[in-house]
């Protein structure tokens, strides 16, 4: 049970302000999710360089990690630390090597996400504190999603915070409660998808990654989830170039969107959108139940 925010920019002029807007939106959803918060930001990048976002139970010494990794990989490694998280950028062909080297170097480091554009940050605590610790307001990018969590049945931990990422440049945030996630998790595990938590939302993320890995488009994967996921859900998902929204056929959980020439925005409540530029003249609407909404900057 949660608050979701999302912002997909059409106008490059707003890109330097992406994080600033997202931080305000995230903080507005504090009451819906006081336990933990997280966000994924899609920024600069190229297919040749891959960003690995890692999280630790403490602050990470970026310089030391960079030295160790550079010698392990014998190649160029960028390391940027933000609080308990660190983003390691390596050549695309070295990702596998880097991931195993990281595992060997420090078992306190957990991989949050891998992608050429996406960085993913999440932590236990109030949304405003989480946003500040990672410097969200200073981040720029093309699109991003954020989440504030009120844990229902799984633990209040950083691993249980959203977004969940189970594929390259893919992330998912969820509001609601799935009723068939245990059986689905078993099915997907047999298909080779691995899960880090008991969280129902991670199963949804894994499900979409599984569909995408089979060559399905994000729109197609969302469409398929209408049949395979039971219970209540509003999903907001991100890919390297896209931004999608889906509500279950019953449509219990509230959701509101705003679209202008400059952006598409999502909020669990209108409050989250109320400070966006030009909101007075935006087309504000509620996504229909069982209807896939998808925006893609590559299209």
């Amino acid at each position: 049970m949660c608050g979701i925010v999302g912002l997909f920019l059409k106008d490059p002029a707003l890109e330097p302000d992406l994080g600033r807007h997202l931080a305000v939106m995230l903080e507005t959803m504090t009451a819906r999710g006081p336990d933990s918060a997280g966000f994924a930001i899609y920024g600069d990048g190229s297919p040749e360089r891959i960003k690995i976002t890692l999280r630790a139970g403490r602050s990470v010494d970026a310089g030391a990690l960079a030295v160790l990794l550079a010698s392990a990989l014998d190649g160029e490694v960028d390391v940027v630390a933000r609080g308990t998280h660190v983003v390691v950028t390596v050549a695309a062909e070295q990702v596998g090597l880097a991931l195993s080297a990281i595992g060997d170097l420090d078992d306190d480091l957990t991989v949050s996400s891998v992608g050429s554009h996406m960085e993913l940050y999440k932590e236990v605590g109030l949304p405003a504190d989480v946003a500040r610790r990672f410097g969200l307001s200073q981040m720029s990018g093309t699109h991003g999603v954020g989440h504030t969590r009120m844990a229902t049945e799984s633990a209040v931990t950083t691993a249980g915070a959203h977004p969940f990422s189970t594929g390259k440049d893919q992330c998912l945030v969820h509001n609601g409660s799935l009723s068939n996630h245990n059986e689905l998790r078993r099915r997907l595990t047999r298909e080779g998808i691995s899960f880090a938590t008991e969280n129902d939302s991670e199963v949804a993320a894994g499900y979409l990654s599984w569909r995408l890995a089979q060559g399905e488009s994000l729109g197609g994967a969302l469409e398929a989830s209408l049949k395979d996921l039971d219970g209540f859900y509003t999903f907001v998902v991100g890919t390297d170039t896209g931004f999608g929204v889906l509500r279950d056929p019953i449509g219990c959980k509230h959701a509101v969107m705003a679209e202008t020439e400059q952006y598409v925005a999502f909020g669990t409540e209108y409050r989250a959108l109320s400070r966006l530029p030009g909101i007075e003249n935006a087309r504000v609407f509620e996504p229909n139940p069982a209807t896939v909404y998808f925006w893609d900057r590559a299209a």
């Binding site: 049970m1 949660c2 608050g3 009451a31 819906r32 999710g33 009120m150 229902t152 509001n175 609601g176 409660s177 209540f232 219990c252 959980k253 509230h254 669990t268």
Partner: peptide, 9 residues
């Protein structure tokens, strides 16, 4: 309303 987040409101 549905769920604890809406119940709060």
């Amino acid at each position: 309303w549905t769920g604890p987040d809406d119940l709060e409101i």
